[in-house]
Nucleic acid binder design. Sequence first.
DNA 1: GGTTTATGAATGAAAG
DNA 2: CTTTCATTCATAAACC
Lengths: 224, 224
Amino acid sequence: MEPRTLQLMELQTQQQMELQAQQPTEEGGSIQAAGSSNRWAPTPPQLRILKGLYYDKGFKYPTPEQIQEICLHLKQYGQIEDKNVFFWFQNLKARERQKLKEFRNVPVGGSLDLNFGSTSSTDDGRSIDLNFGSRVGYGVDTYSSSPFNTNTSTTSFSTTGGQSFMEQRGGDHQEIETLPLFPMYGEDILGNMKTTSEGGGGYGGGSHISLELNLNSYRDADMA
Amino acid sequence: MEPRTLQLMELQTQQQMELQAQQPTEEGGSIQAAGSSNRWAPTPPQLRILKGLYYDKGFKYPTPEQIQEICLHLKQYGQIEDKNVFFWFQNLKARERQKLKEFRNVPVGGSLDLNFGSTSSTDDGRSIDLNFGSRVGYGVDTYSSSPFNTNTSTTSFSTTGGQSFMEQRGGDHQEIETLPLFPMYGEDILGNMKTTSEGGGGYGGGSHISLELNLNSYRDADMA
DNA sequence: GGTTTATGAATGAAAG
DNA sequence: CTTTCATTCATAAACC
């Protein structure tokens, strides 16, 4: 019942190899102590950046090279591999698309006509009210890429038009393409200037770079 | 710490979900929608129908379209969304699988004995599981289509005991696809008549599960 | 009332 | 790209 207790990640002074924030969700004390989670989980800064790319930049089809760049950049915020970035994009794309699929075409296909007004479903025979309702509670909702979540992308200027105007594989999905994702100078793909402020977690391992992104438009909406 | 404290819940087998007589108020959950951060819980009729599909029909892989149909149908028994249906099936499949996984691997180690005949579905005897024994042994090489290599991991746990290699995916499964899930005539999967009076009163009949529908007569042409 | 159980929800990873 | 699998997180209900 308690609205999720937001809590911040404890500082880790240095990036762990296995102990990256395995539980970037909310909740308080990690239920299962540290480590031992084999699968990667984005640290808050990583997630913020990834989301920035995807939503703000509309960057959804990274090439292998770009994935490497992104990954390299994200390493300063915690352990991460190319494949993690790859999967992250792939999953997000897939789930957004899936979500759309669910929305579309209300089964008007003749055979189904099972509304008898028994409930308050306000069935007019066609309204798509599949995804509304119960999600109110604690104003947050994981940014979530679940196939069904109401789109909570904090920015939503691109909000996945699906394949509206983007072309597919091999070409130019988005404008960036040749533009270096994380140039050594100036701003990065997110339009952020280099700063040294922490990303939010404390993952910044001093080992390199000072290129720090600071997404102004993003708050750590990630599962707070 | 081991994230999974091996617990012996195996013989738990079937949980009598029917018994837990919850009362989410079949009105569509309107009472709870206010601000009590509730997660969806199937109303008894909804659960009955879902289980009917899963166990009786062996319907385990609903397509997005079918999910919509199911969801739409279930709305008359209470508030529900597509994702609820989606997750319900996913979870049930996953846990069914998980349960089996715990069974095999008898502590005696040594010889591999993959001979555990019956399926674990001991649900009231109503489990007419059509195709079980999902996939066993996944041959893993590189995660397909991704330009990376999983070096190290190489998870090549193939040949982990003879694999019965059955391919269910592709057109197989049990897919009733073209058959309407909830035909407008006569009874539905549970042998319930489509009456409108049902929905409002109190979850339809209380007793439950007396369905005897015979799968065989159902349709034996499409699924192999 | 803290602990366990059941299960909804989320998401990384992988298969096809 | 689409679906499915596996594991984990979250939380209400049941249990003690």
